[in-house]
């Protein structure tokens, strides 16, 4: 994920914390946050994932005027030669296998982060429930407006030959 400009905002932190059912006051109450060790609202541990909102090319967000693979009048908005059901769960763009974060400090409102993503290793494995698995790693460095490293994120995605057996 690449974000040229990811402004960390208090309302976004509040909404993100709500979505992961985290009611810790440090994520929405500035007065309370002043009484805590960080002394300010901070972002929850997985918040930088929301940099997707600020990636202009993020493929899993519908774009105005562009085809979208989710359902409308038809089960999918994109016609394919053969959908086959595989290829990362029928065109779902693969599944998330691992996620790792290293916090150099915790993001807070007012930070303007940039996220620069570099590809990492790729490897293959034979899966019991989904055929051949192709893993690929990416490393994203989130830096603040002063160029200081804030969070290092390492994600691993996996593409499966067919949907995962249930």
């Amino acid at each position: 994920m690449a974000a040229n400009k990811f402004p960390v905002e208090a309302s976004h932190i509040m909404m993100f914390a709500r979505s992961v059912a985290d009611d810790n006051q440090i994520y929405y109450d500035e007065e309370y946050a002043k009484t805590t060790e960080p002394g300010t609202i901070i972002a929850p541990p997985t918040f930088v994932q929301a940099s997707a909102q600020f990636d202009p090319d993020y493929s899993l967000r519908p774009k105005i005027g562009a085809p979208w693979f989710g359902s409308g009048g038809e089960p999918t908005g994109i016609k394919r030669e053969s959908s086959g059901g595989g290829g990362g769960g029928g065109g779902g763009g693969g599944l998330h296998a691992e996620q790792h974060y290293e916090y150099h400090r915790h993001p807070k409102p007012g930070d303007i982060l940039t996220g620069e993503t570099k590809p990492g290793k790729t490897w293959e494995k034979e899966g019991r429930r989904s055929g051949k698995l192709v893993f690929s790693e990416s490393i994203t460095e989130y830096r603040d407006q002063h160029g200081e490293l804030v969070v290092t994120a390492r994600g691993v995605g996996v593409r499966t030959e067919r949907p995962v057996d249930q």
Binding site: M15, Q49, Q53, R61, G70, P75, T76
Partner: peptide
Amino acid sequence: ASGDYNPLHTDEVF
């Protein structure tokens, strides 16, 4: 909140 609108998570029909 996250910006990940992959239909696999929200679109039962797809």
